[in-house]
């Protein structure tokens, strides 16, 4: 059962299309990673899914509801947190919880308070005094306290250091196990997603390059190294995603579709970063993404 469905979804600001012709299903109960370079349209998609704007083209439907026209029925079912989460700076953490309890019929205040206690975030702390990691955690706790069926997270960890990212992911995984919710998490940082997310969508310029179960994707992709002259033979059986040629040898990133019979080819495992990068490279504009990956590797 799909929780969220986008059909030929597009959004235009003036003359510029921020998102164009996106068709995407989000299956229920999954933690979906929405991966792509900056400008791929991830934020726009999530904002349309939240009903912040009316799409310029196509439709988006969640639980059979339009996020905008059926806002009163849709909003209680969905939680949302964004990069550098916009929290009221003059509020204390406790007042944010009070805000949530006032603005939501469905609201689990005690659960939120106990999560914050476990994170050692005092209710009397002012929002302005929190670190970036704490703010992201508070935003996630707030979104979860709505007891949503669907949680949309827009680059929630973009400004966090690796330790804070790890703690954020731990909180997200524990909560999704407890509450049994569907999560869409957009990110341009791939490293942490393998352990957390069980579904992957690679998006470039509003087009999905790769969609599927995380384990299946990682399990079926391999690097094959072998003689250049038999690339075509490999291609008859396997799906070749990326080709790198040196003088004698070819290095292929393939999606395995059948058995590898030719003993001249050696197989190596690949990690998620390499798979994603290979699919993005099939599309021309990957420069910013590669820069992000390089920066991530350097840090």
């Amino acid at each position: 059962m799909n929780v969220l469905e986008a059909r030929k979804l597009g959004m235009r600001y003036g003359r510029r299309w921020a998102l164009q012709d996106l068709t995407l299903d989000v299956p229920g109960g999954r933690i979906m990673a929405l991966v792509g370079p900056n400008g791929a349209g991830k934020t726009t998609f999530l904002q349309l899914a939240m009903g912040f704007a009316e799409p310029s083209a196509g439709t988006v439907v969640a639980f059979g509801l339009s996020p905008r026209r059926d806002a009163a029925a849709f909003l209680p079912k969905v939680g949302y947190a964004a990069q550098e989460p916009p929290l009221f700076r003059r509020f204390s953490v406790g007042e944010l919880l009070k805000m949530g309890s006032r603005l939501n019929r469905r609201w689990d205040g005690p659960l939120a308070a106990s999560r914050l206690r476990r994170l050692s975030i005092g209710l009397d702390l002012s929002v302005a005094s929190l670190s970036g990691g704490m703010r992201a955690q508070v935003a996630l706790v707030l979104a979860l306290a709505k007891m949503p069926d669907l949680l949309l997270l827009d680059e929630p960890m973009a400004s966090l250091d690796p330790l804070a990212r790890h703690e954020f992911m731990r909180l997200l995984m524990a909560a999704s196990a407890e509450q049994g919710l569907t999560v869409v998490l957009s990110s341009h940082i791939i490293g942490d997603l393998r352990a957390t997310c069980d579904y992957l969508v690679v998006l470039t310029r509003g087009r999905t390059q790769l969609v599927g179960d995380m384990d299946e994707i990682v399990g079926t992709h391999q690097r094959l190294v072998g003689p250049v002259d038999s690339i075509d033979a490999i291609g008859h059986v396997q799906e070749i995603v990326q080709v790198e040629l040196s003088e004698r040898q070819a290095s292929l990133l393939v999606r395995m579709r059948g058995p590898l019979l030719d003993p001249r080819w050696e197989r190596y495992p690949v990690d998620l970063d390499q798979i994603v990068l290979a699919y993005l490279s099939r599309n021309a504009s990957v420069s910013s993404f590669e820069t992000d990956l390089a920066a991530e590797a350097a840090s």
């Binding site: 806002a71 909003l75 939680g79 964004a82 009221f88 805000m99 939501n104």
Partner: peptide
């Protein structure tokens, strides 16, 4: 300016 309206919009009150 700070974008905090989105926090309110993500709660259950309509726009």
């Amino acid at each position: 300016e700070q974008g905090t309206y989105r926090l309110a919009w993500a709660q259950s009150v309509t726009r």
